[in-house]
Amino acid sequence: MTGLLPAHEQDWYEASARERIAGLLDPGSFVEVLGPEQRAMSPHLAQFDLTGAFDDGLVVGRGLLDGKAVLIAAQEGRFLGGAFGEVHGAKLVGLLRAARDGAKEGGPQSVLLLLDTGGVRLQEANVGELAISEIIRAIVEARIAGIAVIALVGGRSGAFGGGGIVTACCSRIVVSEHARISVSGPEVIETNKGVEEFDSKDRALVWRVTGGRTRRLTGGADRYVKGRVQDFRDAAIALVEKAPPLTIATLQAEQRRLAERLRLYGDAKDAPEIWEKAGLSDPTHMADLTDDQFLALPMPKEADHDAR
């Protein structure tokens, strides 16, 4: 039914990668690069009896955000879980290098990264992993050149594995309630360490450990939004303006910030222990709050920072 709504009114979680781009950018401004008609597909999937996608699950290009030129990439979480393969990864590497190279020559000053991924595509494990490493280096180089790289997370595949690491390399991170960000997925931890370490079927637990609200409260995300594409658009417009630079001072501040998190919450095994120590009232009912109630909460001091 989402197709009946205007693009910006759509639900981010339900929307496809192309629908998210359409609603996020100024109407009609998106110009795709290496689009599906170019058939840049994975050559590796056939040997696993998998059908490829004409865009290998990543849409890249440029457009306007509130009148300003931006570069944009969106992962299609419904194609192989949005996972990073060789072509998929290389498209993002190319886009980030374009941002870096264009920074001082009047090119777009920001990159929007719509992550929706389970991490490395295991059928292409080595080339996917290496692509993630190249993406990290390209993000760092782009940020040093002055580019704001904004991660937007709220799709059904979340931002897992290398996707979680890439997220935390960005200048700013926007999440919705549905956003799940972590490295090892709950199923992987359960398989390796047992159900008593992490019960991946316990959806409330998974949400508390990896979800958008926990990330926002601890400073793992910079902005929490309601679930419409328009909400992500508003946040992106606000955040591209004042993204923190990536300097030695930034990383020194991040070192202090992450050390302080360990000092304050290092013993915690579940989110309510953190929320209680952070002084939030009624920490056991965080999941029951509406988005409006959550947005009205006073944030702990560690939630807002420029140390990323």
Binding site: T167, V183, S184, K193, F198, R208, A268, K269
Partner: peptide, 17 residues
């Protein structure tokens, strides 16, 4: 490290850092 505690505290941020 595959542990609930590390993920809860934002392992992705520590590795990215």
């Amino acid at each position: 490290n595959m542990a609930r505690r590390d993920e809860l505290l934002g392992l992705n941020e520590y590795l990215a850092h």
